[in-house]
Design a protein around this nucleic acid. Structure first.
Lengths: 226, 226
DNA sequence: ACATTTGTTAACATTAGCTTAACAAAAACT
DNA sequence: AGTTTTTGTTAAGCTAATGTTAACAAATGT
């Protein structure tokens, strides 16, 4: 999704900050909208249905936390992303765990490059590419966020590579992943490791899952299949 | 705190009354849950951690008084508010409810407006003094307002960074927080501190909590898990 | 101003998990 | 069948990531 189609609603009571953010986001091609308090933000959000709302926490009339709560409870808005703006040294405790469902925190003072990259990361998430934190296949459930694999009610611990490898295979059950592809997607293009490395990891996964699920297609690669 | 975030557990053996209360509370925006006896109520309460439980006194299987007693003895639930539903002419002496720690009585027949205003009053009490900033996970209770962590009846003092770090981890139990994320959310984007800093804080927290609860996922991050 | 508590760093110890090498087994090819 | 190629297995080393400690700096309290 290109920036031109992304609507971002900026909410802050300080005009300077709004202007600053708006300038930087517009330069990147985003569509921007502004509101100066939570109340206004919600009305506007319902109207324009932005992809992302950047909310200052401290605002008159209605603060960011409260606004976020309302947004999260509005069925029309519950899927928009919300990022909080927090003062540099604002106690994290003020916001932490108010599990109002914020997707990110951006701290002041805002640096344009940080802002942009955070926003892009956020939007990447919304587009589905990354998210999908929980995948269930048969009696297997892998949770990328918690980094756990649950198998027959048992939570198993998987070290990084094993997890990523299994995760990759499961991402498309049935598809055969060639060694090349596994290499680049689990290890990356730069680092070079021997060929047996993959086998060893496959073996460990099989060991933990009691075999069966990962199949070898000789000369081609591996696949996950029930 | 807006009604949308208030969870109320309604407990009565008469479906009509449940439905009546539920209808009225939902209209006000509260989240409601229902159970038809004390047994069920307790299981449900542990699960959903409601803010308020409205208990009928006379019920089959387990009556309200007994249920309340159990609730008050469960560390995870001891701070929820409990209100009893009493028949109009029920003798107060019979109730003995205050002995088991009820916070209010609501007498049948229930009038919607009375019900709502009593509930709001109750919840105001909660917000004024305790709770809301209080999170309980297992035998841990962290209070963001007081900056304290209670563990096995012991109030521990956590310095700011430690507290914020623990607080972050607990805000989503199970989720693995990468070092990057920890950095930005506890320290902020601007300030740069060495890598070992996080470890040292983690260590101190573990020291105080007697270890176990914070787990390391090597190469990924840390998570809080029971 | 001093004492105490927090936060950070640096240097070193430790460990988990990654990689490898060497060999065994199984397919695949002649 | 024999040979070649690919994969499985094992255990031992290696390395990067984390744990640990203590000393110092910074903040906070008295």
């Amino acid at each position: 999704m290109s920036p031109e189609h992304i609507k971002i609603l900026l909410v802050d009571d300080e005009p300077d900050i709004l202007e600053f953010m708006e300038y930087n986001l517009k330069k990147e091609g985003f569509q921007t909208y502004t509101a100066k308090n939570g109340q206004e933000a919600i009305e506007m959000a319902i109207d324009i249905k932005p992809h992302l709302i950047i909310l200052d926490i401290m605002m008159p009339v209605m603060d960011g936390i409260e606004a976020c709560r309302i947004i999260r409870n509005n069925p029309e808005l519950k899927n928009v992303m919300v990022a909080f703006l927090t003062a540099r040294n604002e106690d994290y405790s003020q916001i932490a765990g108010f599990d109002v469902g914020a997707d990110d925190y951006i701290s002041k003072p805002i640096k344009p490059r940080v802002l942009i990259s955070r926003i892009k990361a956020l939007l990447r998430r919304v587009n589905g590419s990354v998210s999908e934190d929980l995948v269930r296949i048969g009696d297997l459930e892998i949770d990328r966020e918690k980094y756990t694999v649950t198998h027959n009610e048992q939570q198993l611990v998987f070290p990084r590579k094993e997890f990523e490898l299994l995760s990759l295979l499961i991402s498309k059950p049935g598809k055969v992943f060639g060694r090349e592809e596994i290499m680049t997607r689990v290890w990356g293009d730069d680092i070079i490791v021997g060929d047996r490395t993959i086998d060893v990891h496959i073996r460990k996964i099989r060991e933990k899952l009691g075999d069966e699920s990962i199949k070898t297609i000789k000369g081609v690669g591996y696949k996950f299949d029930t």
